[in-house]
Amino acid sequence: MIKHHPESTMIHAFVAGELPASLSIAVSAHLELCPHCKAIADKATKAMADEFSGNEALVELAEPTPAQPVDEFATMLAAITEQPTDAPALKSAAVESSNQMALGEKTYTLPRALRQFSQTKWSGLGNIQRARLGLDEGDVHASLLQIDADSAIPHHTHKGYELTLLLDGCFEDESGRYEKGDFIILNGEHHHSPYTAEGCLCYTVSNAPLHFTSGVSKLLNPIGRFLY
């Protein structure tokens, strides 16, 4: 059962289209897995649409009089209705698109928000495979991470924030156990060492590299950028 959800302010920002793409993907994918948050988002969409459309009476477009130049809106309206409408067949074509992703021996079904990244290039380090999504959002990096069964990521903290959306499998850390759909945001105050028994696939967004804090794993800091 999903225990970790995005805050409602984040869901509202997502609905308003105000979140960056990297975080929008995470919220969208979470909503696909979580009926509870989906309901919050649907309600927010309705409320925003109501605010957008107001509640005023319909008005007619002003008829252009010969003395006046034709209104810009009127020209646009005329041009739009000259266009052919789409054939109804597009309805099913729009949903046809693969969201299957094969990786090693496993095939995952990606959330819709991630399906255009199913062909992203992967690179590996030890037990971890990473595919960076080329979203071009400056310091904010978004990646898919696949972690092999019976693997741990050494004790670390986060210089910025790190969002993890668990897409498949499960993992645990000092604060508990996480399952498919969990939406976890950590920042510099959190230290943890996640471990996965069965392996997992995550979507992560962070704005700074991980910082490893114990023993020999500190050696990972120079290469920590791999995980960011």
């Binding site: 609905v15 969409t45 266009q83």
Partner: peptide, 28 residues
Amino acid sequence: MSLVWRKAQLYSPEKGKASTWVFTIMRN
């Protein structure tokens, strides 16, 4: 508004109000 014109057939009132539909097209 072009999308509204071209894709109107995909709207159905069971999925919500027209204004919600137009809002989502605009937001997207």
